[in-house]
């Protein structure tokens, strides 16, 4: 029988990337149990992603918190992700935070394109427990999100924690917002991790069926 050919691979081809930006409400109302659970959720998120050898090199995480809106973690692969300990203070400039997150995604996509890195549709994951305090700024952000969603440029998920203005969240996306029951941040992040793991291992053309979230209430 013929032997099997001994080939070498193109060493310059990078792994495909799945960018995920977390836009997290750290306003004063998140104080106490909520912010503690959110922090623990981020640790669980990291642990779950790092337990998956493929996801840890393909999933890239960034974090924007508000308020005020600020970048606390620029894009990094899940393998290098070290969750910050967030503290709560300030108001809820939702519009500014969303715009900043979308700007960062646009930049990231450009980096992928410049390097010839293949990428999956990026995810934006918003978590808030309040109503926006930066006036109508969220409306412009909503227009941008819906436009991107329609172009399949992002997958946007809004999660309302107790106290969130669900009417605003409904208008942010074509997708229904989810309500976190209690402070089940950990369950939510484990779900997010497993969804990202599935996406980052999916095949071209595949629409990845996500497990129904178990951490929300209808």
């Amino acid at each position: 029988m013929t032997t099997i050919p001994d080939v070498t691979f193109d060493p310059t081809n990078p792994d495909p990337r799945c960018a995920c930006i977390l836009i997290l409400d750290t306003s004063g109302s998140m104080h106490g149990e909520k912010i503690n659970q959110l922090n623990q959720g981020l640790v669980a998120f990291r642990d779950a992603l790092q337990s998956d050898s493929v996801a840890q090199s393909r999933v890239e995480i960034a974090i924007v918190t508000f308020g005020p809106a600020q970048l606390v973690q620029d894009f990094t692969t899940a393998g290098n992700f070290n969750p910050p300990t967030l503290t709560s203070s300030g108001d809820t400039p939702l519009g500014a935070a969303l715009q900043q997150g979308l700007d960062m995604l646009a930049l990231r996509k450009q980096v992928y394109k410049d390097n010839g890195t293949p990428y999956y549709r990026p995810w934006v994951f918003l978590i808030t427990d309040g109503a926006p305090t930066d006036g109508d700024a969220w409306k412009a952000a909503a227009t941008r999100i819906i436009d991107e969603e329609n172009k399949k440029g992002v997958a946007f998920f809004a999660v309302g924690v107790e106290g969130a203005d669900m009417q605003v969240l409904k208008q942010l996306s074509t997708r229904e917002p989810l309500t976190l029951s209690g402070v089940h941040f950990r369950e939510m992040f484990v779900w997010l991790s497993s969804s990202l793991q599935k996406v980052s291992q999916s095949q071209p053309g595949t629409q990845v069926p996500l497990a129904p979230p178990t951490w929300n209430q209808v």
Binding site: V7, T8, F9, D10, T12, N13, P14, T117
Partner: peptide, 19 residues
């Protein structure tokens, strides 16, 4: 992924020559 450059689309000879 093994043999076609993502960026340029060029073929990687180290893959095809042995085959």
């Amino acid at each position: 992924p093994m043999c076609i450059n993502y960026k340029s689309g060029s073929a990687y000879d180290g893959f095809f020559r042995p085959l």
